[in-house]
Structures are given as structure tokens and as C-alpha cells.
Amino acid sequence: MNRWAAAVEYDGARYAGWQAQQHANSVQAELQAALSRVADHPVEVVAAGRTDAGVHGYFQVVHFDSQASRSGYAWLLGSNSGLPADIALRWVQPVRSDFHARHSARSRAYRYLIHNARHRSALLAGRAAWVTWALDADAMHAAAQVLVGERDFSAFRDSECQSRSPMRQVQHLAVSRHGDLVVLDIRANAFLHHMVRNIAGTLMQVGGGRRTPEWVAQVLASRQRTQAGMNAPACGLYFVDVEYPAEFGIPDAPEFWLP
């Protein structure tokens, strides 16, 4: 039995999330079906992180085990030919048997995209949140810095989050403007359910002038989800990177084409 790692990208609009579900389409189920056809036996995949319904993946890393004798290129070509157009493998490569897509990860990164304009966009529809009121990206960035470090993120977790601890270490959080796009980049050791979308929704309140930057610190200290902003739309969220120890030889994520 050999272990393989792969990078997957997907448009999450048609799926009920990453995780396989009995009565809904999922990215995991589609990928497992494609890999199983290439392997000629059932294949299960483990991902670096689960994404919710409507969330996209730019560099989701998975691992799977197979006894089939296939090259990395055979896995790549065969699986991509059987996957729907909105899911694709970037690469497949052999890895050590102790590599684990989830447990070996040191950090994960997400990007949240906001189309900040009075007009709607045909090309960004379903790929970015649309906010019509003006956002001050600099104010959002300044307010976000209180969230960097090891913090109790109870105020930013979903009520159905199953994590045993609300503690997470945010290593980087930046908000910047690129024309009509406001971009939130965040990296942490791990994330709580809806954590990034709740942070994005909270920072939008600051960016729109409805709350002061100091309010974010108050929300964090409250540890109450009811004190934070809205859960921002899923369509703006992308899983963009996962970091592993160099010894596993996992390639770096290429630069995202959206700023």
C-alpha cells in the first residue's frame, strides 16, 4: 500500500462543502469516485481542511492510499478526465507513509474576496462577496491586528462548531484594496467553523464606518458570537495554502491569480 499526496482546486458553488454527505453533492465524494476508477478499488481521501458549502479551494492538499501500481501522471490524467469541470487536481506525487494531509500541516491560509462597487459583476458573481457601500480597507486592516496571535476565538465560531477548544493562533492577517477588490488574507495553525467568514463580516462593519476599529477588540474579549458581525457570504472564501515541514516535499502553492 503506497501513500500519495495531491493538490486539488475547485469551485465550491455547486457543492454542499468538502466533506462527503449521503444526500448532497460534495467535493470529497467526486474526488474519491474519480480516484477509485483509476485505482480500480475504493479510495478514501483525507484533506488538510474541510470547507463549507459554496467555499472554493485553490490549493487544498489531500492524501490517499492505494495498492494500485500507477505513476503520478497516471493518477493526475486519469482522475482529471473523470472529474467534473469545477474540480481539478494540480499534481499527484508519492509521499512518506507517515505524511498526513491534516495532522502534518503546520498552518493553513484563506483569502476572502470582496467586490466593493455599486455595480454588480458578471465575472465575480459567485466568486466574491458583493458589498455596495464603501469600505475603508486601511481601517479594516488596523482593526484586524488585535486578532493576530494565540487567541480565544469563541466570538467568531459557529454555534455548531465541534472543536474542543476555541484557541487558535493567527500568524498573519492583512486587509488590502486592489481597485474594486478588498482582499482579506489570513493564516493560522487551524480554524474554527465559520471563523474566517465571521471575521470578514465583523471587519466589514468597521470598513463601512458602522463600528470603530476598537470594537473588534471588544468583540474578541466578549467571547460571544452574538457580539460579532454577520457571517460573510461563502462565495468570497478560498482555501489558498497549507504549509508542511520541508521533509515531506510538498510543493508550495503558486501565487493566486486574484489579488
Rank of each mutant, 00 (worst) to 15 (best):
D11I: 10
S104Q: 06
H193Y: 12
L77F: 14
S36W: 02
V131G: 03
H193V: 04
I186M: 09
R164D: 13
A188S: 09
Q93V: 13
D158Y: 00
E255M: 05
Y112H: 11
Q162S: 03
A74Y: 01
A47Q: 07
V61W: 01
P166N: 13
S66H: 03
P254Q: 00
L184R: 06
Y58N: 00
W215F: 00
S121T: 02
D65K: 06
R157P: 04
S36E: 08
H172F: 13
G72W: 04
Q93Y: 07
T51W: 02
A174F: 10
R118V: 06
H63L: 09
S69G: 11
R223G: 07
Y112A: 11
R70H: 10
S176Q: 08
A122W: 05
R50H: 09
E44Q: 13
T212C: 08
P245C: 04
M140P: 03
P259R: 10
P259D: 09
N80T: 05
P259L: 07
S79R: 07
M204R: 02
D11Q: 12
Y15S: 02
A217G: 06
R106K: 11
L173A: 06
N198S: 12
V8H: 03
P94S: 09
A253P: 01
S121P: 00
V55L: 03
V183H: 04
Q205P: 00
V216T: 04
R197F: 10
Q93C: 14
R187E: 15
V219C: 08
Y73G: 10
L124T: 08
A68Q: 00
G12E: 05
V61H: 02
V182W: 00
Y238I: 11
I186N: 02
Y15R: 04
P233I: 13
D11A: 10
Y58R: 08
R108I: 06
V27L: 03
E247C: 10
Q93M: 15
Y244N: 01
H119L: 14
A5L: 07
R225W: 06
H103E: 12
H23M: 11
A246H: 14
N25V: 11
A128E: 05
W75C: 05
T51L: 08
N80Y: 11
C235N: 15
N25Q: 15
D252H: 14
R14F: 02
H119W: 09
R187N: 11
Q67E: 13
G57S: 13
A101W: 00
A221L: 01
P213F: 01
V43N: 07
V92T: 10
L192P: 04
L77V: 15
P42L: 01
L31E: 07
R118F: 08
R14A: 14
P94L: 06
A129Q: 11
S66P: 05
G49K: 13
V196I: 08
W4F: 09
D86M: 04
A174I: 13
G78S: 00
S81G: 12
I114G: 12
G17S: 05
Y110G: 10
V92S: 03
E30H: 11
D11R: 15
Q28H: 14
W18S: 01
A13V: 12
A143E: 03
C235E: 14
N80R: 10
G179A: 02
H115A: 10
G229P: 02
L113M: 15
Q32P: 14
M204L: 07
